[in-house]
Design a protein around this nucleic acid. Structure first.
Length: 113
DNA sequence: CGTTTGACTAGTT
DNA sequence: AAACTAGCCAAAC
């Protein structure tokens, strides 16, 4: 069933599918949803997603691999802590080896047919 | 219902 | 190279 009733839920669906040890960017998610120019909306969705424990928002970073929204988390450095706990190397609020841990929904999920 | 904002991104100065 | 501007779009006020 189409759980995608709202833009937010669509984002949640994608973020939920982010594998452990991988991160993605707002733009990529938005692009996958068909709203590449709505990268901010993805962030907005995440703002609400913080209320959802099922949404690993910490796996979503900006295009630079920087933990832009770390300040929005419960803990100041919680975002980094979570990423590090998932085998993601983070240093100075920035994801190291970003290209290696970057998870592209369009490439990994690929809208099948 | 009009204005502001906001976890972005790409382009320009 | 760093800072600023603009575009984007939907939710919150």
């Amino acid at each position: 069933m189409a759980d995608q009733d709202n833009f937010f839920e669509r984002v949640y669906e994608v973020v939920r599918q982010i594998p452990v040890g991988r991160v993605t960017s707002y733009g990529s998610i938005g692009k996958f949803l068909g709203a590449a120019r709505s990268a901010r909306m993805v962030g907005w969705a995440m703002n609400s997603a913080v209320n959802f424990e099922d949404i690993p928002a910490h796996r979503v970073v900006n295009r630079n691999g920087i933990l832009t929204g770390k300040h929005h988390f419960k803990g100041t450095n919680l975002m980094q802590q979570l990423l590090e706990s998932e085998s993601v190397v983070v240093h100075n609020d920035q994801v190291q080896d970003f290209d290696n841990v970057f998870w592209d929904p369009m490439k990994e999920l690929q809208r099948d047919s």
